[in-house]
Amino acid sequence: MTEIATLPFKISVLVFLRSEDGRLLLIQRRKAPNLGCWSPIGGKLEMALGESPFECAVREVHEEVQLKIATDDLHLFGYVSEKSFEGSGHWLMFLFDCKVTISALPPEIDEGHFAFFTREAINTLAIPPSDHQLVWPYYDSHRKRFVALRADCHPGQELEIVVEQSL
Rank of each mutant, 00 (worst) to 15 (best):
A151M: 00
I41R: 11
S141P: 01
M93D: 11
L105Q: 10
K44Y: 13
P128Q: 07
V65H: 10
S84R: 05
T118L: 10
E164V: 02
V100K: 15
M93G: 07
I4H: 11
S166Q: 15
Y139C: 01
Q157S: 12
R150E: 12
L7I: 04
H142V: 01
K10W: 11
I122H: 05
F146S: 11
E51L: 12
P128M: 06
P137T: 03
E82S: 15
P33M: 05
L92K: 12
E46K: 14
L45Q: 04
I109A: 00
L76R: 06
E120Y: 03
L24Q: 14
V100H: 00
H75C: 06
R143S: 08
L24C: 06
E111I: 01
S12K: 05
L95V: 04
I127R: 04
L159G: 01
N34G: 12
F116Y: 06
Y79E: 13
R145M: 09
F116A: 13
E3N: 11
L67F: 10
A70W: 00
L92V: 05
D152R: 03
L17W: 09
A104L: 03
Y79Q: 14
S39R: 15
H154I: 04
I127M: 04
H90Y: 00
F54Q: 15
F116L: 07
A32S: 08
L49C: 13
T6V: 13
K10S: 07
S130A: 14
P106N: 09
S88V: 11
D131Q: 07
T101V: 13
R59I: 06
E55F: 09
S84M: 12
L134C: 09
A151H: 02
L14C: 04
L74V: 08
E51G: 05
H132M: 02
L25Q: 05
L92Q: 04
L67H: 09
V80K: 05
A126Q: 05
P40E: 08
P40H: 11
V15E: 14
W38S: 03
E3H: 13
P107I: 07
R30L: 09
I109F: 06
L76Q: 07
T124L: 13
E63T: 10
R59V: 02
A115P: 01
S19M: 01
F117S: 07
E82F: 09
S103H: 10
D97W: 07
G22H: 13
D140Y: 04
E120W: 06
A70K: 15
G22I: 00
I161Y: 00
G112M: 11
D131W: 08
V162T: 14
D97T: 00
S103E: 11
G156W: 03
L7N: 02
